[in-house]
Design a protein around this nucleic acid. Structure first.
Length: 423
RNA sequence: GUGGGCGUAGCUCAAUGGCAGAGCGCUACACUGUGGAUGUAGAUGUUGUGGGUUCGACCCCCAUCGCCCACCCCA
């Protein structure tokens, strides 16, 4: 035997049972997206590196994108995220589209990172964006979509939460404590992001090292520990009021430590996590004003988020929210008793198929017990048996593997018999 | 890119320098026109790879490849 060629690091094989989960998730995302009036779209999987150059986080582009030369020598990127593509698609037809746009997508992305729990190199992402409105209510809609998705897959508010903040609020708060330069503010944003990952004393030391005065550090901690801080932001006040009206407040929390890594967010930012802080963020998003302009269009505000399939699947598994997927390929197995009866069985299977059932008919010569065992293992509930006796009488034996019952009926009564058992 | 852990049957894992094993799964039979259960029997390994130490290596050492986990970053 030849040695099996290994798959590419960080990719996943979707065997039928995995594919069933992916399709189930896709269907849920479609349901939620469409219930809010969003339309599905898709972009190319390959893009030029320039598309990401100024917009995404620097590390994302320089270190984590899959980039390779094509046969003509041009540098090609496997898309690491969708938002720049979306911005380009909007910019290209900026004056033909009807705003606000509500668009969603579910497709593959690639990042050249070391795989670990909840992270692969090839993954699927749900992207959903509202483009062309600037209202806090629009931002709230996206948060509500997340919450509605959680509700739909039966993740409870005690299990997952969506944490919301506003970069403008943080900007003004930092301004108040004398952090005025862009460079220092950026540094402080990174600091805030890391606070939960470090020991408090280490974090204090690190903050001072990063250029904060002792007074600024004390004030910063006051800001970050103030759960009522959102009341000082008229926008966040409206966001939370809208979320209340949308009936999803139970999932939503204010958190001044949410900053998000992508550089293009300008206002509201949010992420969802497992409430016992396990694993990485389930999804992340926010409001971005400059992206369409950055790819050559006119300025256009937008808000959106992305959810990866890897982390959400871990969370759904953890909380028992995945249905049991027994990917039964068919409703009924039509057995072939012996080669001479093969065409008779094929005829029966064809007519059953026309009635709208999923029918599998044996094409291999094998013994009846083997065919029954096959049906059992594949989760096919009903079996039709036509041996010489039934054939001579114009009948067929129908067997219900789940209920351990069978009866011999005229061929035309196969479906009525099965429907009766199903009822 | 940095740090840690692990590679033994199809799968999950034992075997602490002395004959490579178990459970599950698989195959056959009991049951030659009936699946899940039960019983009996059977098959399967260059112990990831290459070196080294040793009378002797799954075990110790070195290298290498692969996987997992954490950091970084992020979905």
């Amino acid at each position: 035997m030849e040695k099996i060629v290994a798959s590419i690091k960080g990719t996943r094989d979707f065997y039928p049972e995995d594919m069933a989960v992916r399709s189930w998730l896709y269907a849920k995302l479609r349901e939620v997206s469409e219930s809010f009036g969003y339309q599905e779209y898709e972009g190319p999987f390959l893009e030029k590196i320039e598309l990401y150059a100024a917009k995404s986080g620097e590390e994302l582009v320089k270190e984590q994108a899959f980039v390779f030369p094509d046969r003509g020598g041009d540098l090609i990127t496997l898309r690491p995220e969708l938002t720049p593509t979306l911005a380009r698609m909007v910019a290209q037809r900026q004056h033909q589209l009807t705003y606000p746009l509500r668009w969603w997508s579910f497709g593959p992305f690639w990042r050249y990172e070391r795989p670990q729990k909840g992270r692969t190199r090839e993954f699927f992402q749900w992207n959903i964006d509202l483009i062309g409105t600037n209202s806090p209510e629009g931002d709230a809609e996206l948060v509500a979509i997340c919450a509605t998705f959680f509700k739909d897959v039966e993740l409870k508010p005690e299990q997952v939460g969506i944490f919301v903040n506003d970069r403008r609020l943080m900007d003004s708060q930092l301004m108040k404590i004398g952090i005025t330069s862009d460079a220092l503010r950026k540094t402080v944003f990174k600091l805030i992001d890391r606070r939960d990952k470090m020991h408090p004393t280490e974090w204090d030391a690190f903050s001072i090292e990063s250029g904060l005065t002792l007074a600024q550090l004390t004030n910063l901690k006051k800001i970050l520990d103030n759960r009522e801080l959102w009341k000082e932001s008229p926008e966040l006040t409206r966001v939370f009021a809208a979320l209340d009206s949308l009936g999803v407040s139970a999932y939503v929390h204010f958190d001044p430590q949410i900053i998000r890594g992508l550089d293009y967010y300008t206002a509201t930012v949010f992420e969802a996590r497992d409430l016992d802080r396990e694993g990485r963020a389930i999804l992340g998003g926010g409001h971005y004003d400059n992206l369409v302009e950055a790819v050559g269009g006119d300025p256009l505000p937008a808000v959106g988020f992305a959810m990866g399939d890897v982390m959400i699947r871990l969370v759904l598994e953890k909380y028992g929210c995945l249905p049991e997927f027994k990917p039964a390929p068919a409703d009924i197995l039509v057995t072939v008793f012996e080669p001479s009866l093969s065409n008779h069985s094929l005829k029966i299977s064809s007519s059953l198929r026309e009635a709208g059932f999923k029918i599998l008919c044996f094409t291999e010569e094998s013994k009846l017990p083997k065919q029954l065992k096959f049906a059992d293992k594949m989760g096919i509930r009903f079996v039709v048996i036509v041996g010489p006796d039934e054939f001579a009488a114009g009948k067929a034996t129908v067997k219900d593997l789940a209920a351990h019952q069978q009866s011999t009926v005229p061929v035309s009564d196969i479906l009525p018999a099965i429907r009766q058992w199903l009822a």
